[in-house]
Simulated assay, not measured.
Amino acid sequence: MRTVLIAALGLICALPALATDMPQKPVRLGLCAACHGETGMAQIPGAPNLAGQRLDYLRKALQDYRDGSRNVPLMRAAIGPVSDADLDQLARWYSAQTPQPQAAAQP
Score class of each variant (00 low, 15 high):
Cys32Met: 09
Ala19Met: 10
Ala17Pro: 03
Val4Pro: 15
Gln106Ser: 10
Ala14His: 01
Glu38Asp: 01
Ala17His: 00
Lys60Met: 10
Asp67Gln: 13
Arg66Ser: 11
Pro16Gln: 01
Ala78His: 07
Pro99Gly: 00
Ile44Tyr: 01
Arg2Trp: 08
Leu62Glu: 12
Pro23Tyr: 04
Arg54Lys: 00
Leu90Trp: 10
Gly52Met: 14
Asp67Thr: 13
Lys60Ala: 11
Asp84Tyr: 04
Leu50Tyr: 00
Ala17Lys: 00
Ala103Glu: 02
Leu15Pro: 00
Ala42Leu: 03
Val82Met: 13
Thr39Ser: 02
Pro73Lys: 08
Tyr94Asp: 07
Gly46Gln: 02
Gln24Leu: 06
Ala78Glu: 06
Gln89Thr: 13
Leu11Cys: 14
Pro16Ala: 04
Ala104Trp: 00
Met41Thr: 00
Gly68His: 05
Arg92Phe: 04
Asp64Ala: 10
Leu5Glu: 14
Ser69Thr: 14
Gln43Val: 10
Leu90Thr: 09
Met41Leu: 05
Pro16Arg: 01
Ile44Pro: 07
Gln24Met: 03
Leu11Arg: 13
Ala104Ile: 01
Gln100Pro: 06
Pro16Glu: 07
Thr20Asn: 01
Leu11Gly: 14
Pro23Asp: 01
Ala91His: 13
Gln53Cys: 02
Pro45Arg: 08
Ala42Cys: 02
Pro81Glu: 15
Ala103Gln: 05
Leu87Lys: 09
Lys25Ile: 12
Arg70Gln: 10
Asp86Gly: 15
Asp64Trp: 10
Asp86Pro: 13
Ser83Phe: 11
Asp84Val: 03
Pro99Asn: 04
Ala8Phe: 13
Arg92Asn: 09
Ala7His: 14
Leu62Met: 13
Gln89Leu: 10
Pro81Trp: 15
Leu62Gln: 14
Cys35Pro: 00
Ala104Leu: 05
Tyr65Cys: 01
Leu5Ala: 15
Pro23Met: 03
Gln53His: 02
Gly30Ile: 03
Ile6Tyr: 12
Pro81Asn: 15
Ala47Leu: 07
Gly46Thr: 01
Gln102Cys: 01
Trp93Cys: 07
Arg66Ala: 13
Ala14Ile: 10
Gly68Ile: 04
Lys25Arg: 12
Val27Cys: 05
Ala34Ser: 06
Ala78Trp: 08
Val4Tyr: 15
Leu11Gln: 11
Asp67Glu: 14
Val82Ser: 13
Ala85Met: 02
Ala61Ile: 11
Pro48Arg: 04
Arg28Gly: 03
Leu9Thr: 10
Asn71Pro: 09
Tyr94Arg: 04
Ala51Phe: 11
Ala33Gln: 00
His36Asp: 05
Leu58Asn: 04
Lys25Tyr: 13
Gly46Cys: 06
Val4Lys: 15
Gly37Glu: 07
Ala14Cys: 08
Asp84Met: 08
Ala96Asp: 07
Pro107Lys: 01
Ile12Phe: 14
Ala103Phe: 02
Gln43Asp: 08
Ala91Trp: 13
Ala91Ile: 12
Ala61Tyr: 12
Arg2Pro: 12
Arg76Gln: 14
Pro45Glu: 03
Ala14Met: 08
Ala7Ser: 15
Met41Cys: 00
